[in-house]
Design a protein around this nucleic acid. Structure first.
Length: 376
DNA sequence: CGTCCACAGGAATGACGGGCGG
DNA sequence: CCGCCCGTCATTCCTGTGGACG
């Protein structure tokens, strides 16, 4: 049930699998496939499909004696030019020290190795938007042009992202090269999610331990949250863990509902932990006064700052903090025009305010303030 | 029909701390 | 190893805006 598990069957992704396969087919004839750009929201199976297809290709290629190599790089974790290149080198069996070389030296070593190997290298750049956001598209540009320098081998790039606007930020030359082929992964609907869950559950759970309706409940909850299969699987897994912890003989619907709460609380707690102090204070103001406008929230925020003897930030900054909280999915904002009474944002919580306050009270500075608040 | 409210949100700039690269 | 650069948080100043009100 873990998110990094790659199943041997991927329901409802046949279309994407066959499309990617046909794009990569030239590999089996020893030719260079087009570069591929893959787009889809989180939990739509992008990574699993790409890994799956490459695995199958590798198996088959080995069998028919048409070998090729591939490297998988997750740019969220390997977010420097050096580390991406090192991963890439790893894919063709070139050892690169974890530090000490200049990037151009690594580049040269890769080129030399590729020339002598005369193979095809497929590079998967997962969450490629992270790389570009941090380093720009220079590396991408060089990678797309590398084939011109190579004699023996060819490189194919598969870029994966969930950022819609990603392509717009690219250099046009990189854009046209990377976007030779595009594959889109639509979100799953509730019925498809149910299928996926059934499929996985048959391997992870003993027959009969899942009560009736448990799977469809997980599926419908996840479908409402943008058809994210990872969320659906997490929900089922945590439900199971919850039931196990309690020594229950069956996983019932109630476990799912509680698992949902637990996941939500963990997620919120995780986000809040990394929030800067003023982010937390603004969130506290929001929890005290849900449904308020920016101005109202700012007044409450200032009061909180005063009683904590903290210097408040400007309203401009608070406005940005609210936007950030919105992006993180903790709150919901809506811009309203109230004519004579101005234009502002109405802010609603996405999470139960009690939960928020409970999590926030773990912050030392805020703890006392909340105790005080409670006693009134 | 023009005003003006209550902000949204862009641009320029700066302090600061950590990590990259030479 | 050390300086510089870059990302983050923040300020200041600013222009933009939909519609109720007079």
């Amino acid at each position: 049930m873990r998110p990094d598990y790659i199943p041997d069957e991927l329901p409802h992704r046949d279309e994407q699998i066959s499309k990617i396969s046909s794009i990569l087919a030239p590999l089996l004839r020893g030719e260079k496939p087009n570069n591929i750009f893959i787009y889809g929201l989180t939990g739509t199976g992008k990574t699993a499909v790409v890994k799956y297809v490459l695995l199958k290709f590798k198996e088959y290629a080995t069998k028919i004696g048409r070998d090729f190599n591939y490297s998988y790089v997750n740019c969220r974790y390997d977010d420097t030019t050096y580390r991406v290149l090192a991963k890439l080198a790893e894919g063709i069996g070139v050892k690169i020290p974890f530090t000490g070389l200049s990037t151009s030296e690594v580049f040269n070593r890769i080129i030399t190795a590729l020339d002598s190997l005369s193979t095809s290298l497929v590079v998967v750049l997962d969450e490629i938007d992270f790389l570009v956001k941090k380093r720009g598209d220079e590396l991408l540009y060089r990678l797309t042009r590398i084939n011109e320098e190579l004699k023996g081998s060819k490189i194919t790039i598969i870029g994966v992202t969930n950022d819609v606007k990603f392509m717009e930020r690219l250099d046009p030359r990189v854009k046209s090269s990377l976007g030779e082929e595009e594959v889109i992964f639509p979100p799953y609907d509730a019925i498809q999610l149910e299928d996926i869950l059934l499929h996985r559950a048959s391997k992870a759970f003993k027959p009969g331990v899942l009560d009736e309706g448990v799977i469809s409940l997980c599926a419908s909850i996840a479908a409402k949250e943008h058809g994210d299969a990872r969320r659906a699987l997490d929900l089922l897994r945590v439900s199971g863990e919850l039931a196990e912890r309690e020594g229950a003989s069956k996983v019932v619907r109630d476990h799912v509902l509680r698992a949902r709460m637990e996941i939500e609380r963990d997620r919120v707690a995780e986000v809040i932990k990394t929030l800067p102090l003023h982010g937390k204070l603004v969130l506290l103001s929001l929890a005290i006064n849900p449904g308020g406008t920016t101005g109202e929230v700012y007044n409450i925020y200032r009061d909180i700052c005063k009683s904590l003897a903290v210097e408040p930030v400007t309203q401009r900054r608070v406005s940005d903090i609210i936007s950030e909280l919105d992006m993180l999915g903790i709150i919901n904002t809506r811009i309203v025009n109230r004519g004579r009474y101005g234009k502002t944002r109405v802010i609603n919580l996405n999470t139960d305010s009690e939960t928020l306050i409970k999590v926030l009270s773990e912050e030392r500075k805020i703890e006392a303030f909340i105790k005080n608040l409670r006693s009134r």
